[in-house]
């Protein structure tokens, strides 16, 4: 590699990292937080006995899981203006990613809740708890532990998926790298560089995942 290329790499590293920290990471965090909330809600509704809400939740998961994320983002950002709903790129991206996380992770949360032994519900009921209390105090804390590894996977996928926001004009890290390519004419170099930064982010998150799993390992599942 010649000196010019090395110089380009060094010069572009900071702007790319900045875009990652200022745009990719916030987009990921906000979308995941809202998505997780949606996921828990959806899981609880699907486990409940409310007929109509159950149907709606099932429909939501079916549609989101059955269509490409890219198509969903295009509908939200390019499609909705046709019916008068015009969204900022960031807002559109957050909506798209949250809905996606919500649908996929609701299955994780649902499976985790079901995996908790029925005896735990009964023990909670036997001390006089309502369903809600049992869920909050006994079931969800245990389900959380079960669902950390698969949820961490969703989170890491999301970091990478946010690059799709580039297609709806949100200038996050990947779109920044496209702009850099346009001025440097070094696609191999720059796209590899941005790939390495995504790898760095994922690795940090995996480490965090290990830490969380250890922390929750104070007790072993019964």
């Amino acid at each position: 590699m010649d000196d010019r290329k090395i110089q380009i790499l060094i010069d572009t590293l900071l702007p790319l990292l900045k875009a990652g920290v200022a745009f990719t990471i916030p987009l990921t965090l906000v979308s995941f937080a809202i998505g997780l909330l949606l996921a828990v809600l959806t899981a609880l509704v699907r486990l409940s006995s409310w007929r109509i809400p159950k149907l709606i939740a099932g429909f939501y998961v079916w549609v989101i899981r059955g269509t490409p994320l890219l198509v969903q983002l295009f509908i939200i950002f390019y499609g909705l203006p046709a019916v008068g709903i015009i969204l900022q790129p960031f807002t559109a991206a957050v909506i798209g990613f949250s809905l996606s996380v919500g649908a996929y992770s609701s299955e994780i949360v649902r499976a985790a809740i079901i995996s908790i032994h029925k005896g735990q519900w009964e023990a909670a009921f036997s001390v006089g708890m309502t369903r809600g209390q049992a869920l909050r105090r006994v079931i969800l804390p245990q389900a959380t532990r079960v669902s950390i590894p698969p949820l961490a996977n969703s989170f890491i996928s999301l970091v990478k998926d946010t690059s799709l926001a580039a297609t709806i004009t949100y200038v996050e890290m990947f779109r920044t790298s496209q702009q850099v390519v346009a001025t440097t004419y070094e696609p191999l170099l720059i796209y590899s560089e941005v790939g390495v930064i995504y790898l760095l982010f994922s690795t940090v998150l995996s480490t965090l995942q290990n830490y969380l799993e250890k922390r929750f390992d104070r007790y072993s599942a019964s």
């Binding site: 032994h117 005896g119 735990q120 009964e122 023990a123 909670a124 009921f125 036997s126 001390v127 006089g128 006994v138 804390p141 245990q142 532990r145 007790y219 072993s220 599942a221 019964s222």
Partner: peptide
């Protein structure tokens, strides 16, 4: 349920 307490064959303690 608030007037009764139950002890289970498999204990069912809250592991967390």
């Amino acid at each position: 349920r608030r007037k009764t307490g139950m002890v289970f064959q498999s204990y069912n303690l809250f592991p967390h």
